[in-house]
Amino acid sequence: MIVPLPRFKPLWMFLGILLLPWVIEGLLGRGWVRILDFALLSVLLAVGLNIVVGYAGLLDLGFIAFFGVGAYAYALLASPQFGLHWPLWAILPTGVLVAAGFGVALGWPTLGLRGDYLAIVTMGFGEIIRVFLNNLTAPVNITNGPQGITMIDALHLGNWSFARPHRVLGIPLPALVGTYYLFLLFVLLALFLSRRLEYSRIGRAWMAIREDEIAAASMGLDTRRLKLLAYALGAVFGGVAGGLFAGFQGFVSPESFTLQESVMILCMVVLGGMGNLRGVVAGALLLAFLPEVLRPLGGWQQHWFHRVLIDPSTLRLLLFGITLVVLMRWRPEGLLPSRARAREWHTS
C-alpha cells in the first residue's frame, strides 16, 4: 500500500474556510461566529479523542477531564487567582505536560488490563476531577470551588490580544474572527499531526493492537506503552483545547466538565467515523451546532403550550444517547468511515 500523502484540498475549499467567519457574520450575525469558534474547539477535542478511540481502540469516557485540566491550568497561570499572568507560549507547554502527566498516571494502572477497565476508570476520573475542582479551596484556595475562576487573561500573543478587534492592512478584523483564525491554526496542526501518526510505524502498531492485542504483543509490540502513548496524546490534545477554551471564555467552572460532555465528544467521534479524520471533523461540527438548532424548540413550546415540555438541553443529551445506540447497532463505522474500520465492524 502506498502511503497517501496529506492531500492538498482545492484552493477554493481553502478560501472557503478562510472566508467562512465573514460569511457567517454577514448572514447570521456575530453570535454565530462565537458558536463557530467553540465548534473549532470541539473539533480539536474530537481529533484528540479519535487518537484514543479511533486509532488505538480504547474507550475513554472521561476525556473532558483533560479539557478541564488544561482549562484550569490556563486559568491558574493567567488570572488574578494567584496573580500570575503567564504568556500563552509558556502556558501551553506547561498545560501539555500536566495533561500528559494526568493521562499517564491514570492509564498506567489500567492499560495492562482488559480494555473495559479503562472505560470505567476514565469515567470515574472524569467525576473525581470535578470533586477536586469543587473542593480545593482549603488550606489554600486553588480552584475557588463551584464559582470557578473569573477574569482570566484573554488569549494574546505579545501585544496582540485576541479579545480585541484589530485592523489588518486596513481591513477591520473583529475579535471573534481573529480567534477563529487562531483556533483554525490549532485544528489544522492537530489534523496534520494526527494524519502523520496514522500512517506511521506507530499508527500501524495501534491498528494492530486494535485488531488483535495478543498477536500484536507476540510480534514484539510493547502494547502497554503504545496504548499509554495514545492515551497521553489524546490527553494533550484535550488539554490544549481546554487552555484555549479558558482564555476564550474568560472564566471556568467545574460545571463545564461533566460526563455528559465526555459522551458528547465520544458521540462526535463515533458519528463521524472512528479513525477517519474527515468523519471526525464532520461529526464534531454537526454536533457542535446541534444545540443551536434545538434552542428555538423551547420558545416554540412556550408559544404553543405555554410551558416547556421538553427541555432542549435534555433533548440534546437524549439524542446523543440514542445516536450512540443506533449507530452501534446499524452503522458502527459512522457516517464517513475509514475503509479498514468499516471492514473491522462488519466481519467479526
Binding site: D116, I310, T314, L317, F320
Partner: peptide, 24 residues
C-alpha cells in the same frame, strides 16, 4: 458478536438515554 467497543459504547449510550428520559 460485534467488536468489543460496540457493546461498551451502546452501554454508555443506554445509560444516557435512561438518565435523560428520567429527566423528561
Amino acid at each position: 458478536h460485534a467488536p468489543k467497543l460496540a457493546p461498551l459504547i451502546t452501554a454508555i449510550g443506554m445509560s444516557m438515554v435512561l438518565e435523560q428520559s428520567s429527566a423528561l
